Simulated scan of single mutants.
Amino acid sequence: MEPTVIFLIGAAGSGKSTIGKLIASEYNFCYLDKDIVCNRFTGLLLELQGHSPHERDGCVFYRERVMDLEYQTLLDIANFNLQLGLSVVLDAPFLSYFSERNFINELREKYDWQNVKPLVLQVTLDFGVLKERMQARALERDTSKFADWDGFVKGIQEKRCLWEDIEIKQIDNSASTVDLQTMHEALSFDK
């Protein structure tokens, strides 16, 4: 089977990490979480510029200088694994790239993904459940989201993934536990 790269997208707190780890475990994929890969150096870069290490939303320095570096690092690590024949789950929102219709085709060309199957799995959930989960995780980086919850939700609703030439599947993660059968059906893989 050709290696697969799953772009696991969804709002902060939607359960991307839970689903990504399940996919990695169930299918023996490499699991790459942007936060784990990048948060240490991102926090340091932000501090060196006089920002909070948790400041992402609304931070011009992060958006203009750091964000692309984070995603490039994540994709370079993913490509290394894919070239070894290992399938990869990428756990990152990718929200800022949704409007780039040619995003996947540019990655195919850049990394020569002739024998790699890209797939988008979008994690969705009820916004009331999302708010509860974010409150329960109590991360400092979510403070600005709670300060303007309606604006945060509106931003999620307005951001549609417009990538071309890639299948976009959805999985609802509103339940308290992930239904493995639903996950398998969404991925259409034979276990």
Rank of each mutant, 00 (worst) to 15 (best):
D126L: 09
E185Q: 13
I156M: 14
E70K: 05
D35Y: 03
Q157K: 13
A12D: 04
F41Q: 11
N102W: 02
T18P: 08
R63F: 06
K169S: 15
V116E: 15
V88S: 07
I9Y: 00
V88L: 15
I104H: 06
T4G: 12
T143Y: 01
N28I: 08
N115T: 09
D68V: 02
D126F: 05
Y111A: 14
F41S: 07
L44R: 10
E47Y: 00
P118V: 09
S99Y: 01
L44M: 07
Q72M: 04
V153Y: 06
E64R: 05
S176G: 13
D165C: 10
F29S: 13
T42V: 15
L48T: 07
F189Y: 13
T42R: 05
A24V: 10
L22S: 14
L180V: 15
D91L: 05
L90M: 04
L95Q: 11
C38N: 12
N39L: 12
G151S: 08
T42N: 06
K34T: 12
F7S: 01
S144G: 09
Q83Y: 04
V5Q: 11
F103N: 02
S144K: 11
G151T: 04
Q49E: 15
L121K: 08
M67D: 04
L32W: 03
E132P: 00
T124H: 02
S14F: 00
E140Y: 05
V89H: 10
E55T: 01
F98Y: 13
F94L: 02
I9W: 00
K21N: 12
S174T: 15
K131I: 00
I23Y: 08
D33L: 02
V178C: 14
Q49I: 01
I166F: 06
